[in-house]
């Protein structure tokens, strides 16, 4: 479904990603794990069109998308839940959700999408009028995920969805991802929560210093000695 091929990205002449190739198949959860500053956020931003690659290709549903701008990529329903949530702080919860359905296709489906989000996170149904800035960190993350769902993603990318959250909300996030998986969503997850991400994932890639150094089934990597040593402290 998503095919990243030999991707190179530079920031002001400094290479940030080198020779990245990865694949996400339909109905899969794929995670990219690795230390901070390894280039994970750059990877997702490049896929979303916020950064242009120096070379390499990105294909989504058989179409090359790396030359498109972010809104055109959204139109193809490849949706990202960005790092730091990037909500619209002065807007109400309901308006943040509606902005998720900004594009015409999603707008047509607004009531059903809202229904779906409220089912997943009932608190938003009660708090439609609250300003996004006044939500707690965990709630904001839920709202960011909900906003992405409003865009009716075919592939959902999440960038550090549990960053800065309490253990309770971290549980919540991974619980939500599990539910989405059961509903048949395709997911590309980027996270520092190596153990939980690998548990959840069908396949995973380890990204270090802008390069993929390992890939495999989630469970396999979890048993890999190097991974255990480097990321799980065992």
């Amino acid at each position: 479904m998503l095919k990243v091929n030999k991707l190179y990205v530079e920031y002001d002449g400094v290479p940030a990603l080198r020779d990245i190739s990865l694949i996400v198949n339909e109905k899969e959860i794929v995670s990219v794990v690795g230390a901070n500053g390894g280039g994970k956020t750059t990877l997702l931003r490049t896929i979303s069109g916020l950064i242009k690659p120096t070379s390499g290709t990105i294909e989504f549903m058989g179409e090359e998308i790396h030359t498109l701008s972010p809104h055109e990529i959204c139109m193809r329903r490849l949706i990202q839940v960005p790092e730091g949530r990037q909500l619209f702080p002065k807007m109400k919860v309901i308006d943040n959700l509606k902005m998720g359905a900004y594009l015409p296709e999603a707008r047509k489906n607004l009531p059903q999408s809202l229904e779906r989000v409220y089912k997943l996170f009932p608190i938003f149904k009660e708090r439609t009028k609250q300003k996004a800035a006044l939500l707690s960190g965990g709630e904001q993350q839920m709202l960011a995920i909900s906003r992405a769902l409003m865009s009716m993603p075919k592939l959902l990318m999440l960038d550090e969805p549990s960053e800065g959250l309490s253990p309770l909300f971290t549980d919540n996030v991974f619980e939500t991802l599990k539910i989405l998986k059961e509903q048949g969503m395709t997911i590309l997850l980027v996270s520092q929560e190596v153990e939980r991400s690998l548990e959840l994932s069908d396949r995973a890639y380890v990204l270090e210093n802008g390069q993929i150094i390992m890939e495999g089934k989630g469970g396999e990597l979890l048993c890999n000695d190097k991974v255990r040593e480097a990321y799980l402290g065992m």
């Binding site: 979303s48 809104h71 959204c74 139109m75 619209f88 906003r147 865009s151």
Partner: peptide, 24 residues
């Protein structure tokens, strides 16, 4: 209006706005 809210969204958070498909 959606476009008007898009204007505000872009102002409040340009990255967030780009990622919900607003053509800046």
């Amino acid at each position: 209006t959606y476009i008007g809210k898009g204007v505000q969204a872009t102002w409040q958070n340009p990255i967030g706005a780009a990622l919900v498909g607003i053509n800046q």
